[in-house]
Each structure stands twice: as structure tokens, then as C-alpha cells.
Amino acid sequence: MNTTEQSLSVRQAIEKRHSIRTYKQEPIPQQDLNKIFELVRLSPSAWNLQPWRFHVVTDNDLKEKLEEAAYGQKQVTSAPAVVVVTSDMEDVLANIADTVHPGLSPERKEEEVANLSGFFNGMTVEDRAQWGLTQTNIAFGFLMLAVQGYGYSSNPMLGFDQEKVRELLNLPGHVKFAGILPIGKADSEGYPHHRFDLEKIATFH
């Protein structure tokens, strides 16, 4: 199946997306995972720092341990793939030159690296980690739309023991969690949308 040709429009992906908790037991082809993350990596971030990191879990034993860390929520093992979305600002700072646009002159690149390093080194590890998390949440939204656009379903999760997940994935203590996203072909229907009216959420000045 050529998923690229059959992908949904942005509007269709938004309208069709529901949180799904039961999935068909069909592996997601690596090609489809690659296509999804090729789109997600285009997510915007301030200063192009791209602090998001995606840990894609397909191993059944590890998914069982993740389910336990997620307080027994069965969608973790029902889904053929589970994405743990994290933010790592310390890795960003260690490789800050990689975020600077290659089209800049060497002098301009040096200036950018110095400015960014000075700004973030003036913050605590915790403060810059929280800053990075706000950027990673943007990519989390892009991820859900990319998943839906390629014909898969998902369910964003924040209910899990972060320290257990950190240990399972061998992540350093400074890494922040944006959430967990089980993905796969839906084997159940989500609840109908129940959202506030436009007048409740949008004020036009």
C-alpha cells in the first residue's frame, strides 16, 4: 500500500483523530514509521534547537514493562508501536553548533553559538529543561497529526511513572517527558468529539 498517495489532508487528519485504546495486531512497516518521523522532524522550534527525542518501542517485552509503568493501561501492549516523547536540552547544548543554519557565514555561526550557549548556560538545568519541554510539545502535536495522516491512530498518555520509564529506556535524569503515544491501526472506535464552542476558546480583538 502506498501510504503517501493515500495520506489524509491536514483537515481530514484533525477531524478524524480520536484517542484509540485498542489496536489491530498488525506491525507498522518501518517505511511508514520513517515517513511519519520525516514529517515530525520538520516541527518548528525557537532558534531551531529541536530538543525533541523519540523512543519508538516495538519490542513486546519492553512494551509489557512500559504497560506496567503506565499503571496497567492496556493500549500500551495493544499498539504495535509505542513512542515515548522526550526533551533533552543538555544534548542540545552539547551539540549547539548543529542547530545553526549551514547557510550562515562562519563568523555568523560562531556568533550564534556564543549567544545561544550564553543564554542557556545562564539558566538552571531544570529551567532550560522546562523550556525545551514547551518546544517538544509542539512536535508531539505534529506527531499525532502525522500518525493520523498516514492512516494510523494514537492515544496521547501522561499517566505513567516517569522514573520507571526513565529506567527502562536508560535515560539521564535531566530528560523531560512530553508523553507516551501508542500508535497502530484502530480496532475500536473512539468517543465522539466533545469540545468547547469556538466562542469559549477564541477571542478576536
Rank of each mutant, 00 (worst) to 15 (best):
I96K: 03
M144N: 06
G132D: 01
E15L: 13
W131L: 01
S87K: 01
E111K: 15
T203Q: 11
P44S: 14
K109Q: 15
S188C: 10
R41E: 08
L49A: 07
G132R: 01
V82A: 02
L62F: 07
R21D: 00
H193M: 07
N2K: 03
T58W: 10
A13Y: 08
S78R: 04
D127N: 07
L171I: 06
K109N: 05
Y23G: 02
W52Q: 08
P102D: 02
L33T: 15
T136H: 03
I28V: 15
M157Q: 02
V92S: 04
I180E: 02
E68R: 10
S117Y: 07
K16N: 10
L171E: 09
V57I: 14
R166V: 12
D88F: 13
E199D: 11
V76A: 03
D91C: 06
T86R: 07
P51A: 13
K74S: 09
L169H: 11
Y152K: 09
F120T: 12
K63V: 13
G179N: 09
Q135H: 00
M157S: 05
P156R: 00
E15H: 06
D32G: 01
S105A: 09
T136P: 03
N121F: 04
L171H: 14
S153W: 01
V165C: 01
L116I: 06
E110P: 12
Q135N: 09
V40R: 14
R195C: 09
N137R: 05
L143N: 11
V92W: 03
D91A: 13
T86F: 05
T136F: 00
L145E: 08
G179M: 06
R21H: 04
S105D: 10
S87D: 03
L143M: 12
E112I: 09
G190N: 07
A81G: 07
Q31E: 15
V76I: 15
I201Y: 10
M1D: 01
P80H: 12
I201M: 08
G118I: 11
Q148K: 14
P51Q: 09
F140M: 15
S9H: 14
E68P: 05
L104W: 03
L66A: 06
K24D: 05
I180M: 15
Q75H: 12
L198K: 15
N2P: 12
R11G: 02
K63Q: 04
N170D: 09
H194F: 11
F196T: 11
K176I: 01
S87W: 00
T124C: 09
S117E: 06
A129C: 03
R53G: 08
F142W: 07
K185D: 03
T77Q: 12
F204L: 12
V76T: 11
I36H: 13
G132N: 00
N115M: 12
L145K: 03
L62R: 14
R195V: 11
L8Q: 14
